[in-house]
Design a protein around this nucleic acid. Structure first.
Lengths: 143, 143
DNA sequence: TTATAAAAAGATATTTATATCCTCAATATG
DNA sequence: CATATTGAGGATATAAATATCTTTTTATAA
């Protein structure tokens, strides 16, 4: 479904959404263990997200990563698109280029409705909303 | 969602479901191009499925691969389980071991319904049913 | 202004998935 | 029984994903 990389990235931004702010930045070394992601690899992923303005960062002493208010309004799909590439979830289940509604692949009819629903969710749910669920203990983010 | 390997495998069994029978076996060299799968790699995948009794084969002249009537009654998930391993689709979206209904991960609530629906489809749809769709031109299997 | 701390960037290593090649074993047919 | 043909199996090669290490840049604050 998702690559390890995008799972790592989602865990990281959800953690940042919960525990960071512009006034309280988090360094990689301070939370990579909390989300069980390899330290150096997490740094790479966050750099990539930072380049795409999906997380915020500053260098130097007292620097670190955090989510700005704008960052928090991004949908989940934006993280996945940057890390996994934008076609990962939308392409045909059998990766057939010519699959479409008029000439669907054998899996198309049965799976397209639930696939579309999942993608809509990813496009609509924002980090802010999921962070609220975490805060209210309606969901949890164990290592 | 699925690996290339299981996509290849699904395309192959769907092709065999359409065009092979015990009386009309297909050799790898005769159809790998039809489904756009690397020849030697397709052979490997079919061997693996054969070992698990999901496709039938005989060696020697006039040998090849085909689907028996029993093979045709297998659900799609059995192919995927053999090639990708059985946990690929069922594990948590974030691969959190401790994610469950009582302590769900942040993605759980939004995605579990459509995920379950997809998995049910894979468990219930048989090769025979999808082959029938192909035969009736309700679906298509382009290269 | 200097020392230090942090991310950014680049280079490299490792692991897994994908792909190919070569030999062996089985089977049909003359 | 000999031979050709096919899948089975093992070994190897390549590409992509995952992971680590080192150096550079930027910012802080003493």
């Amino acid at each position: 479904m998702l690559t390890n990389s995008s799972k790592y990235a989602l865990k990281a931004v959800l953690y940042l959404a919960q525990y960071s702010s512009e006034e309280h930045k988090l360094m990689v070394k301070d939370f990579y263990e909390k989300i069980n992601v390899p330290r150096a690899y997490l740094a790479k992923l966050l750099q990539e997200l930072s380049r795409h303005k999906l997380v915020s960062s500053t260098r130097g002493p007292r620097g670190g990563f955090y989510l700005s208010e704008e960052n928090r309004d991004q949908p989940l799909i934006s993280i996945i698109d940057v890390i996994d590439g934008p076609t990962r979830l939308t392409s045909c289940m059998l990766s057939l280029e010519e699959c479409n509604e008029d000439r669907p692949c054998p899996l198309h009819a049965a799976f397209q409705p639930s696939r579309i629903k999942m993608i809509r969710n990813l496009e609509q749910l924002t980090l802010r909303e999921l962070a609220r669920d975490l805060e209210q203990q309606r969901s949890f983010l164990p290592r």
